[in-house]
Every structure is written in structure tokens, then in C-alpha cells.
Design a protein around this nucleic acid. Structure first.
Length: 153
DNA sequence: GCCAACGTTGGC
DNA sequence: GCCAACGTTGGC
């Protein structure tokens, strides 16, 4: 079992949206590194930190779990979608996405600032300079620490 | 809105 | 295969 951090802009799709839907395809990812994580490395049961990016404040808002193995991202075939990719085909899809399931919304939001201030978390990718990847692997010790911070501010 | 840090594209 | 130009991400 692995641990991940997945970024989403709450204006577009927030932890509350996932809570309402219960589960959702993580579609619209158009970055090869992030795609490779979903297609090759993410498996049902993996734990996901749901991160609010481009938010005030940014940070980890809750927990989700991978509920379905990666499959072709349907938005790439949809001409009306902003994620439509004319270079992709159903025979040879370019983009993949996993399904994630809501687990919990944190009692205490773990802000990016709090993560930055915690020395135990200084190696987390999300606090590294210039790290824009929207899906990142997370070490278990870091994952556990975030959970503790969510329990008690 | 700014802009640094990336990632992608396309001409050559 | 190089790399300049362009686009995007995301914190601030």
C-alpha cells in the first residue's frame, strides 16, 4: 500500500465535492509524470492526502482512498470538454485516471504553512521549491505526521 | 495580478 | 536532438 498527495483547486473540485459524490474519477490530469503515477503505481486501497491548491490557505483538507485502478480518462475523447485531446484516440488513449473515494474531511485543516514549519516534514515534495506536480508520492512517516496534525492543531 | 519554476511544442 | 518561445502551475 502506498501513500499519495493529490492536488485539486477547491474552486473546481474540493474535498466537500468529493464528500457529496462519495467517489470520483480523477480526470483532467494532463501531465505525463502524474499520469504515470496513476497508470503504473496507484492501486485500490492506496491512501490519498487531498490537497487544496490555489486556495486561501493552501493545504491538506482531508483523506481519500484509491478505489479503482487507472483507466482511460473519458474527458480526452469529449470534444466539448476543456480536457479534450485531439491527439488521443480510443484505440490508443494518452491519458489515464484512477477513481478516488472520500474517506474523511480533516477536523483541522493542515495548511501548507504548518507543513513548512514542521521540521519532520521538510523533505515532503509539496514543500520543495518549484514542485508543481499535481500527484506526488508521500512517505508513510510524512503521511502519519499529517494525520496527527489533522487530529490536533 | 505577479512571476518563478517548470513542462511542452515545434522549427531547424 | 537542441532550444527558444510559449503555456501552466500555484504560492504570494
Amino acid at each position: 500500500m502506498k501513500y499519495w498527495l493529490m492536488k485539486s483547486e477547491p474552486d473546481v473540485f474540493s474535498i466537500d465535492d468529493l464528500k457529496k459524490k462519495k467517489s470520483s474519477l480523477w480526470d483532467g490530469v494532463r501531465n505525463y509524470q502524474a499520469r504515470n503515477f496513476m497508470r503504473n503505481d496507484m492501486h485500490p486501497g492506496d491512501c490519498v492526502l487531498f490537497y487544496h491548491s490555489n486556495a486561501t490557505p493552501p493545504g491538506v483538507a482531508g483523506l481519500a482512498t484509491v478505489s479503482k485502478q487507472a483507466s482511460a480518462d473519458p474527458t480526452q475523447f469529449d470534444k466539448k470538454s476543456e480536457y479534450y485531446d485531439p491527439k488521443s484516440s480510443k484505440e490508443k488513449p494518452r491519458w489515464f485516471c484512477v477513481e478516488v473515494q472520500f474517506k474523511e474531511k480533516f477536523k483541522h485543516f493542515v495548511s501548507l504553512e504548518a507543513i513548512k514549519q514542521n521540521l519532520d516534514l521538510k523533505d515532503m515534495l509539496v514543500v520543495q521549491k518549484g514542485q508543481r506536480l499535481s500527484i506526488q508520492p508521500v512517505e508513510k512517516k510524512h503521511f502519519d505526521k499529517i494525520l496527527k496534525m489533522a487530529l490536533k492543531p
